[in-house]
């Protein structure tokens, strides 16, 4: 089996986990988790140089990943568990009282793989900038990755961080936008249009790459290109990953309806029928 086929197989199981987690908790955010499932699968099972078994918050000598859009916790927890950060069966505790799998990622309960709390939007890129500077000071040449939502870039802090990253030449910083065009109140265009997002990032001095966020080959190629051009130009890189909200479950696709809503068990059955159990459910 090729690497691509293998990654797609994992991504399908991740999508099953997402549906089962939010259904189990009867809360959570399936829409964006499904749209970014391929991106995070590619990151955690191919791209990242990481060591789940001996992870710590220092991240020294390894790539660091920050989830800025904290509501994507279902997909984040699933890739963390499936790549070995903690037992897969713990996914069943998502959003339960006392669980390490808080509604939005937290470090208080010490879940491996989580460097910083997120949930209040727009903060992750700043933290990633700090981590990238620390790596430079520590002569650690690994990368720092951060995943944001497209609606999230309505937060002003994102653009403060964008200026900072370019000014301080953070060329080991790779940001990814899950560009699904949807947010809670509707389409991004209807809520508060972002205009030409690619032109905005370029105007702020970033290298900006566009890719199909559901094509594994294209995702991996975008990461390769990000590293190559970032190093060449001494610039941070934004990858705009074009995705579809709710990807993988037909009735959840391209609508904001499932941004932050859990399906009832009978509806979840219909969703799971579209997602093959490839690695075994938790």
């Amino acid at each position: 089996m090729s690497n691509i086929q293998e990654l797609n197989k994992i991504a399908t199981q991740i999508r099953r986990d997402i549906i089962r987690m939010v259904t189990g908790a009867q809360s959570g955010h399936p829409g964006g988790s499904l749209s970014s499932a391929d991106i995070l699968t590619a990151l955690f099972f191919s791209e990242l140089n990481h060591s789940p078994a001996d992870w710590n918050r220092y991240g020294k000598g390894y790539d660091m990943f920050f989830l800025s859009a904290g509501h994507l916790s279902p997909v984040f927890y699933s890739v963390l568990a499936r790549s070995g950060y903690f037992p897969v069966k713990e996914l069943a505790t998502f959003r339960e009282f006392g669980s390490r799998l808080q509604g939005h990622p937290s470090i208080e309960k010490g879940l491996p793989g989580v460097y910083e709390a997120s949930g209040s939007l727009g903060q992750g890129l700043s933290v990633a900038c700090g981590a990238a500077i620390a790596k430079r000071l520590n002569k650690d040449d690994r990368y720092v990755y951060v995943l944001m939502g497209d609606g999230e870039s309505e937060e002003g802090q994102v653009w403060e961080a964008a200026m900072f990253a370019v000014h301080h030449r953070l060329d080991k910083l790779i940001a990814i936008t899950d560009w699904n065009g949807q947010q809670i109140d509707g389409t991004v265009d209807d809520v508060i249009g972002l205009g030409n997002l690619e032109a905005k990032w370029k105007a702020f001095g970033w290298n900006c790459i566009k890719a199909d966020g559901h094509d594994m080959q294209a995702i991996l190629e975008a990461f390769r290109k990000a590293k190559e051009t970032g190093a060449q130009d001494r610039k941070p890189v934004m990858i705009l990953m074009k995705t579809r909200m709710g990807k993988g479950v037909d009735f959840m696709e391209d609508t904001c309806e499932w941004h932050g809503k859990a399906p009832k068990p009978e509806v979840a059955e219909k969703a799971l029928a579209q997602l093959e159990e490839t690695l075994g459910d938790y």
Binding site: Y58, E116, G124, V127, A128, I133, A134, Q157, A161
Partner: peptide, 19 residues
């Protein structure tokens, strides 16, 4: 620069790696 929100976040990121 005149961007305090980002400054706090950058500080947090720096602290992670032992700074």
């Amino acid at each position: 620069g005149i961007a305090e929100a980002n400054m706090i976040g950058v500080g947090a990121g720096l602290a992670l790696s032992g700074k």
